[in-house]
Write a protein that binds this DNA or RNA. Sequence first.
DNA 1: AAAGCTTGTTGCAGGGAATGCAACAGAGGT
DNA 2: ACCTCTGTTGCATTCCCTGCAACAAGCTTT
Lengths: 71, 71
Amino acid sequence: MARKPNALRLEEIYHKIEAYPGKRAASLARLLGLNRSEVTRSLPALEERGWLVYEDDRGGLYPFDKANSQN
Amino acid sequence: MARKPNALRLEEIYHKIEAYPGKRAASLARLLGLNRSEVTRSLPALEERGWLVYEDDRGGLYPFDKANSQN
DNA sequence: AAAGCTTGTTGCAGGGAATGCAACAGAGGT
DNA sequence: ACCTCTGTTGCATTCCCTGCAACAAGCTTT
């Protein structure tokens, strides 16, 4: 089934968060053709790699890098 | 057996190369408690992650970052 | 109030990939 | 010759990533 290496998966997810800041996990999953669980389960792994993700009170996801404290 | 995630494994290997530049794969394997094959098989994965490793003609391994061309 | 839809989470099973072991050939030293 | 150490590789085992399905909670629309 040609599973992609984990690193590329995480990179895709983070890039989608950058491209669509504020989207919820389910929306990103549809954009990426992934299962919802895959996206939510990847968030901790993203942070471990230094790609911090901020989550607002409605589940919207935003990139949290570049020392941007207005998120 | 508490196998560590692949990313941490690769990081450990590269840190050992930094700590003991010039050591061969078998030496690093002993220092890390790993099999020799694990270290040599990890070298391509290290490069894919941007942790370039230089290998001299006797098998000694060196970090190859920081634009250091005297390696 | 219901019914419907979407969300995030979680348990489970399948499968791909990482790992360890052992054997091998080659290089070097005694 | 022998012995040791090295890197490589084939194979079997095991890990854990992934998708699926079910669930509860929240929200909107009847």
